[in-house]
């Protein structure tokens, strides 16, 4: 067993296989499980994917939304057990890999065109 195989076999236990395909520009809803006073509940977080980084078990997405006029960006490790679900709501058309320019825009300018050639 070489090093590559050893690491992949270890990661295999943690990698989720039921994740949807996520692209930069998509609008997604992430179900984040939260422990609250001994109880566990799922809190949805909705926003636009403005960046993807890492591969395999390290894969992470940055999801941006504007909440009460304040921009919020959260980075999720998509294979983390605390991420209960990820649902793609809308496919957006993006011409670059990182949509950091959205940080400098407000209101209508933050909209992305919808694309229909990718299924939800």
């Amino acid at each position: 067993m070489n090093a590559e195989q050893a690491i992949r076999s270890l990661e295999a236990d943690y990698i989720k296989t039921d994740l949807p395909e996520i692209y930069v520009g998509d609008t997604i809803r992430v179900g984040v499980s939260i422990q609250e006073g001994g109880k566990e509940r799922i809190q949805p977080y909705e926003g636009t994917v403005i960046a993807k980084r890492g591969g395999g078990i390290n894969a992470a997405i940055t999801v941006r939304r504007v909440f009460q006029g304040v921009g919020v960006e959260r980075v999720f490790l998509v294979h983390a057990p605390l991420i209960a679900s990820i649902k793609v709501l809308r496919r957006g058309k993006a011409r670059r890999a990182k949509l950091y320019y959205l940080r400098d825009r407000v209101g209508k300018a933050t909209r992305l065109k919808q694309r229909f050639d990718r299924s939800l």
Binding site: E11, Y14, I57, N58, A80, P81
Partner: peptide
């Protein structure tokens, strides 16, 4: 690499 513990 990285793995996840019981607390996530």
């Amino acid at each position: 690499t990285q793995i996840f513990d019981e607390e996530g």
